[in-house]
């Protein structure tokens, strides 16, 4: 870790469709698109807040990175209005169709271009792709340790590392790790701050750089569809009876009929 330079913190944010504006038409099984807004992935606000908390405590430059279409610069501006110093949109048609393997490769190339980093924060998962794979994969690419599902964070070793509470299904671990490290954040970690007017004005005027595949020196074979080993083979809409149905018969029969339907719907 570079000793004398300012601390460098990166937050990865993803633009996702706003869960509240996304409605499904269960009859046709399609997304009702009207008025779907793009927002920052909810977990990523906690990643931003974690980065800013570290900045407040230790002094640092915080850079937000997003891979997405050019409109994703809105997400960067929003992060900046909360106090993030700079941001980059990594955007290129060649990135389309990325799975998490290609995504982590692309993000890692962009982050490496930013120089040595001390800490990288990611959300626990993105609400659309929902894999929770980007954080751990990115850590491997950057060659740094990763601590997932973090719900508490404290600076230790005189500002050289972190003590983190990592949640598991049946409890938690307290772990300690020196910088550099990648952390994925739960919503219980913190309460994201509100934007500030001054930062909002600055963000509005800021020129957000857009980095293409060429800018980050990406290997064409490893990005987008080419670099994505997983591919969607087929999709189907789970059967869903929107209409009310009374289940008749004896209690036993009623229960059996219900279980049959729940199994068909894939909920049990």
């Amino acid at each position: 870790m570079p000793e004398d330079k300012v601390m460098n913190i990166v937050v990865c944010i993803k633009q996702v469709p706003d869960a509240e504006s996304v409605k499904w038409d269960h009859k046709t099984g399609t997304l009702i698109r009207d008025g779907v807004k793009s927002v920052i992935n909810p977990f990523d606000y906690h990643a931003i807040e974690a980065a800013l908390t570290l900045k407040d405590e230790l002094g640092a430059k915080v850079t937000a990175v997003t891979m997405g279409p050019p409109q994703a610069e809105e997400a960067i501006r929003e992060a900046m209005s909360m106090g993030v110093d700079e941001g980059v949109v990594v955007s290129d048609r060649a990135f389309a169709g990325s799975d998490t393997l290609a995504t982590t490769y692309t993000l890692s190339r962009a982050i490496k271009r930013l120089g040595d980093v001390h800490a990288v924060f990611c959300g626990k998962q993105a609400i659309d792709g929902d894999t929770a794979q980007v954080g751990p994969g990115l850590a491997v690419r950057l060659g740094i340790p990763c601590v997932t599902y973090v719900s508490e964070m404290e600076v230790i070793n005189g500002g050289k590392g972190l003590r983190l509470k990592r949640l598991k299904e049946d409890g938690f671990d307290m772990v300690e790790v020196d910088f550099p490290v990648l952390v994925t954040t739960l919503s219980t970690l913190n309460t994201p701050r509100v934007p500030s007017l001054k930062a909002k004005m600055k963000a509005k005027r800021a020129k957000i750089p857009v980095w293409t595949a060429g800018d980050i020196g990406a290997d064409k074979k490893r990005i987008g569809l080419n670099g994505s080993p997983t591919k969607v083979h087929s999709t189907y809409i789970p059967k869903f009876e929107a209409k009310r149905e009374f289940l008749e018969g004896s209690p036993e029969e009623q229960v059996d009929a219900l279980i049959k339907r729940l199994k068909e719907a894939g909920v049990i």
């Binding site: 929902d130 994969g137 990763c146 299904e169």
Partner: peptide, 24 residues
Amino acid sequence: TATGRAFIPQVATILETGLTADCT
């Protein structure tokens, strides 16, 4: 699980292969 979803993506990345999340 919390541990599976934490370290299996690292394995897939080291192996440079695809990983499908949370299958049913």
